[in-house]
Design a protein around this nucleic acid. Structure first.
Length: 489
RNA sequence: GCGUCGAUGGUCUAGAGGUAUGACUUGGGCCUUCCAAGCCCACUGCCCGGGUUCAAAUCCCGGUCGACGCACCA
């Protein structure tokens, strides 16, 4: 056990750091905890917010508008979305080979295991949605009345966008294509949540829904901007490997330009916030692993030292599944009139009514946070000490800079506090520290990914310059206080 | 959900029937003109519940949480 657990521990350095330095805490800890729930501590919350902010900016720049919809929704929404049907079957498990089966026409508790012929036992309900009640319900009421009060926590944020489609279309002045984003919590009552942030019961998703005329799917107006981008594709069939997007689309690996465009955007974003490109690939779902709504799906996978390849973003072609289904369940017409291009010799343009298709990049923010922490964590030998450093990009680092007096003396401390306060008054988030030796303070900041440390020394008192020490190189430059703001951005 | 193993200050750890070891961290002080230095002082702990026993961190039972394997992950 000793050797296994010490190996475990060294591989787990980032988990220990995240806990100790206030990034990530198991939820409900003082009550013994509950599996699948994590709280973000002060630094974790800052990091997460900065990642979300970077994501928001990225998609707003692409022309998307953000909306915010409810976490709780009535039963009908999930009847229409297909989640109720896909989630509430009873399940059985084979006592012998442990295979799991959904109860269906062919399989029930009294039957035999289709895999090995072993005895089956009930394994409860597969219901990944958390159920709740909306309003009061009297127990003696009939079943129909019960159903009326039945509500669920959303298992994805997307439905809130689909059910507002008409409003959104109108907001976009009845023109396709357009895109909508949402960042928010989603909930899935996982059977066995594990692996820190990888499988949570409550998690943050950032989803973008692109509505496009199906006839235009292979004609993205900005395809040229991204077509030469090289990506690592792993299709469900045939050879994978590094290809340009254009090649992938032309050879049919990627079925349309819209899907391809957004796959590239996913990689651009991930790279921008600091996920290393060589740890990223795009893997296509096999038909049997596809969600009920998807006609095609590509996962952006991150190569984790700890967990191997793991999904951090899914890019799905949902076709017209959601809009059509909500249209029929809600008895609403959500078709869109589009103009067809005028043909040779025709004087009148024809109009057609179509149901848009949806391309959906869906980001698991918590998994991305994990990937960022793991891939930016380094332990390196500096002299006799091990230096732990989080090489986070400036754009997402929880704290941009820390201000120190070189020595714990009043004249340096008061000057340092002055500089600290000056920076806090800008949008640059800084920290102040005067405890222990200067070296200790540098290392403390390295550990939490602070890119810069500003030190006030006696020279500062003479000429108003400070040293700025860079996290990754540990090199220092002298900078006038007045120029700090531009140096730190 | 099943199986195996585990849980001791903030972190990591020693202890295998007599209420706990050490290191680091943290806080205070001294020292210190740039990378976890040194010295002094201080704080903090046996996952929860039940049982056995004069006595339980230690043994037994149950639970919770975690790691790993199987299954699950629309």
């Amino acid at each position: 056990m000793a050797s296994a657990s010490s190996k475990e521990r060294s591989r787990d350095g980032i988990a220990e750091l995240a806990r100790r330095r206030g990034f990530l805490w198991q939820a409900f800890e003082i009550y013994g905890g509950a599996s699948g729930f994590y709280d973000y501590g002060p630094l974790g919350a800052l990091l997460k917010r900065r990642v979300e902010e970077a994501w928001r900016k990225f998609y707003l720049r692409e022309g998307f508008y953000e909306i915010e919809t409810t976490n709780v929704a009535p039963r009908e929404i999930f009847e229409a979305s297909g989640h109720l049907e896909s989630f509430t079957d009873r399940a059985v498990v084979c006592k012998h080979c442990k295979s799991f089966f959904r109860v269906s026409e062919g399989v029930d508790v009294r039957g035999k295991c289709p895999e090995c012929g072993g005895e089956l036992e009930a394994a409860g309900e597969i219901n990944l949605m958390f159920q709740t009640r909306i309003g009061l319900s009297k127990e003696e009421r009939d079943e129909e009345a019960q159903e009326k009060t039945e509500g669920y926590l959303r298992p994805e944020t997307a439905q809130g966008i689909f059910i507002n489609f008409q409003r959104l279309l109108r907001f976009n002045r009845d023109k396709l294509p357009f895109g909508v984003i949402q960042i928010g919590k989603a909930y899935r009552n996982e059977i066995s949540p594990r692996k820190s942030l990888i499988r949570l019961r409550e998690f943050t998703m950032a989803e973008a829904e692109v509505f496009v005329d199906p006839g235009e799917k292979s004609n993205h107006p900005r395809f040229d901007e991204v077509k030469d981008r090289m990506l690592w594709f792993v299709p469900s069939e045939g050879e994978g490997g590094e290809k340009s997007l254009e090649e992938a689309v032309r050879s049919g690996i990627i079925s349309n330009e819209y899907l391809g465009y957004h796959i590239v955007k996913v990689e651009e974003f991930l790279e921008r916030i600091g996920i290393p490109r060589d740890k990223l690939r795009f893997r296509q779902h096999r038909p049997e692993e596809m969600a009920h709504y998807a006609r095609d799906c590509w996962d952006a996978e991150f190569l984790s030292d700890r967990y191997g390849w793991m999904e951090i973003v899914g890019v799905a072609d949902r076709g017209d599944y959601d809009l059509s289904s909500h249209a029929s369940h809600s008895n609403t017409d959500i078709g869109v009139h589009v103009q067809l291009p005028a043909r040779e010799g025709e004087t009148v343009k024809t109009k057609a009514k179509i149901t848009p298709h949806v391309i959906e990049p869906s980001y698991g923010i918590d998994r991305i946070i994990y990937a960022l922490l793991e891939s930016s964590f380094y332990e390196e030998q500096v002299g006799k000490e091990k230096r732990k450093v989080l090489r986070l990009k400036n754009e997402i680092a929880p704290i941009i800079a820390a201000v120190f007096p070189l020595l714990n003396r009043d004249e340096l401390k008061s000057k340092a506090k002055e500089v600290f306060q000056m920076l806090r008054d800008t949008s640059i988030f800084v920290e102040y520290d005067d405890s222990g030796s200067i070296g200790r303070r540098y290392r403390r900041q390295d550990e939490i990914g602070t890119p810069y440390c500003i030190t006030i020394d006696y020279e500062t008192l003479a000429d108003d310059t400070v040293t700025v020490r860079e996290r990754d190189t540990m090199k220092q430059v002298r900078v006038p206080i007045g120029k700090l703001e531009e140096v730190l951005v």
